[in-house]
Simulated assay, not measured.
Amino acid sequence: MTGATVNPKVERLEAAGPLPAATGESPVWRAAEQALYWVDIPAKKIVRAQLETGRRTEWLLPEQVACIAFNRDGNVLAGCETGLFALTLGEAKAPGAAGGEPLKATVRQLAAPAFPHAGMRFNDGRCDRQGRFWAGTMVMDMAAAIPGGALYRFDSTGALSAPVVDALITQNGLGWSPDGTTMYLSDSHPLRRLIWAFDYDVESGEPRNRRVFADLHHYAGRPDGAAVDADGCYWICANDAGLLLRFTPQGKLDRQIAVPAVKPAMCAFGGRELDTLFVTSIRPGNGASEHDGHVFALRPGVSGLPEPEFAGQL
């Protein structure tokens, strides 16, 4: 069963620079800067591309960084290897300069879960519509297929929850419906390939009534990072298939779009009208094409929603 294949123009984002990421993830559009941020997990970097100037900036962190969100002050909440961190990203002394060495970030740990296994880190994360930060963990050795990952909630008071969803192998795919009452979550491991939907209590931040939203064993690829558009449809990167899949709120696949990279990792809406879909990707170690690891931009004909900011101080 497949949805309609459409072919909007997909272009490599020139402002992202000529060098591919090893694992490009967590794209976040900052309207105040007209800039796209994302991370390169193993490179321990946060990257920014300012679209109007074409300037690229990098910040190097002391450990792997997997997901980021901003608060209203422009500070960053990041899910990393050993926990959640507050980051203040320094700026270059010469704002017009491009390139050069990565800049420094002020790093302060906020919270850390009790990891049940060695070799774990955070993975996919973002804020709900009320500004709570959600992020999940995983065992980095995916070949081991250890279901030791869990999903956590970090609220504006600085409290990290106990595991809200556990027994995850490779947590991914977080997203919320436009009204915030449905939460989406996926497990992208080849043994799982499932997307779940939950009823979401916007007051308490509690997800309930977990059910399968889409089983990607019936489609191409594995469900990686996601975005929700203004129509309430759920866009998922189909890793290993070079596709973006859009599911309606009823779980029906109604569109698929091919992208040049085999392993699209996460997507985010941005641009002045929030009508551009940015897609990060992974560069595999064996036989990568010239497109893998780059950032792409396309206009799918629908608009997205502003990325929620973390409601607390950092």
Rank of each mutant, 00 (worst) to 15 (best):
P116I: 04
A4E: 14
V295K: 00
T53I: 06
L185W: 04
M1P: 13
I195A: 01
P260F: 03
D201F: 01
W59S: 00
Y200A: 09
M1D: 02
L60G: 00
G271K: 12
W196E: 02
R72G: 03
F213G: 10
V107H: 03
A167G: 04
T280C: 08
G242I: 12
L110I: 00
E309K: 11
I146L: 15
A114T: 15
A49M: 10
S156Q: 13
G3E: 02
M142R: 07
R56Q: 14
G287T: 04
P20N: 06
D128V: 11
E101L: 12
F70P: 10
L277V: 10
F278E: 11
I46L: 01
R208I: 08
M120K: 11
I46C: 00
Y234H: 05
T5Y: 01
V107D: 01
E11Y: 05
R211W: 00
E63V: 12
E101K: 14
D141W: 00
A66D: 02
C237Q: 05
R12P: 02
L151W: 06
P116Q: 05
N172F: 04
A114S: 12
L305G: 04
A112H: 10
N239H: 12
V28H: 06
L305C: 03
R129L: 13
K93H: 05
E273L: 10
R72P: 14
C127L: 09
G131A: 13
V47E: 09
A97E: 14
T5D: 07
E206V: 15
F310N: 02
G205Y: 03
W176K: 09
F213D: 10
N7W: 02
H291A: 14
H294W: 07
L110N: 01
L245S: 11
I257N: 07
R192H: 03
L298P: 15
T181V: 10
R255T: 15
E290A: 15
R246E: 10
R255E: 13
G54M: 09
G242Q: 04
D141V: 03
A112M: 05
L19N: 07
P42S: 02
A162V: 12
K104Q: 11
H218Q: 14
M183L: 13
A98M: 05
P249C: 09
R299I: 11
T53S: 14
K93S: 05
V76F: 01
F122R: 08
R30N: 13
A214E: 11
P62L: 01
Q250N: 09
E52V: 09
V262H: 06
D179Y: 08
R132G: 13
Q313R: 07
A214M: 07
G100F: 07
E206C: 10
A258Q: 13
G136F: 06
T5P: 15
E81W: 03
L305Y: 09
A16N: 12
L168C: 07
K93T: 15
A143R: 13
D224R: 05
G96A: 02
G74F: 08
A86S: 15
